[in-house]
């Protein structure tokens, strides 16, 4: 049990912090809609997620007071994100890589076979000139 704290430590943030954060969120919403009309190819999703991540950070840091609270809560929040990333990335190791072995698995065998065939042909060439083998 923690030491007794006679007074509450909760203090209200100034109003301008909340209004400023809300304003920034609105501006970022407009920006994210605007950039979605620009074609960055594959980078559109990256830009959209970066902006969303920035907005989410604002909400978490100011509205949810993570910036001012016990840093343990920040740790909990970030570990949720981290384990979500593990879930997605490790599944993607599978889903975007399937069937790769099929492309390469017969390659070394073919190479070996070619060398073997070549050796065989060469030796046949020496023994029976003009005979090109099978």
């Amino acid at each position: 049990m923690v030491e007794l704290v006679p007074e509450h430590k909760h203090h209200a943030l100034p109003l301008r912090v909340y209004l400023g954060v809300a304003g920034a969120l609105m501006v970022l919403t407009v920006i994210t809609v605007a950039v979605s009309y620009v074609d960055f190819g594959g980078w559109n999703v990256v830009v959209a997620l970066l902006i969303a991540g920035f907005k989410a950070s604002l909400v978490a840091l100011y509205f949810m007071h993570l910036l001012y609270d016990n840093k343990l809560y920040m740790f909990i929040f970030l570990s949720a994100v981290a384990f979500l990333v593990i879930l997605i990335v490790f599944t993607m190791f599978d889903t975007v890589q399937r069937g790769r072995l099929d492309e390469i698995k017969d390659k070394p065998i073919k190479q070996q076979a070619e060398i073997y065939e070549k050796l065989k042909t060469d030796s046949l060439d020496v023994e029976h000139e003009g005979d090109s083998g099978h």
């Binding site: 074609d39 559109n44 999703v45 959209a48 902006i51 969303a52 989410a56």
Partner: peptide, 12 residues
């Protein structure tokens, strides 16, 4: 929702 919005409404 901040994530759902770009992921569904703003694809490229």
């Amino acid at each position: 929702w901040i994530f759902l919005f770009p992921l569904f409404y703003l694809i490229g």
